[in-house]
Amino acid sequence: MSGGLILMAVLAGAANWAFRALPTILMRREARPGGLAARFLAATGPAAMATLFVAALLPELAPAPKAPVPLLAGLAATVLAFLPRRSVVAATLSGALAYGLAFAVMSAG
């Protein structure tokens, strides 16, 4: 195994651990409710989810839509499956299943 590869992996992995764990461990007190830090942190989660969803969606749409029908089917199935019980598991699996089925139908047609 290459020494350079191990060095790169260990440095990147150590930084990943530090980014993920240290802010939680070193957080000594709660942000004051309604304060700047609290509002910033409260918005971080929704902002991260919106960003990651858009980042995952964009390659499907730009520069040209790759598979619009499966995409619409997948997105619609995800939303519809989420609504009744707010289950992330059911929504994700339904979305992927609908996308795959629509892809198969479009490929066959």
Binding site: P46, M49, F53, A56, L57, L75, T78, F82, V88
Partner: peptide
């Protein structure tokens, strides 16, 4: 993509 959408809906 479906997972991120479901997570977005949940928050």
């Amino acid at each position: 993509t479906a997972l991120f959408l479901a997570l977005l809906l949940s928050v």
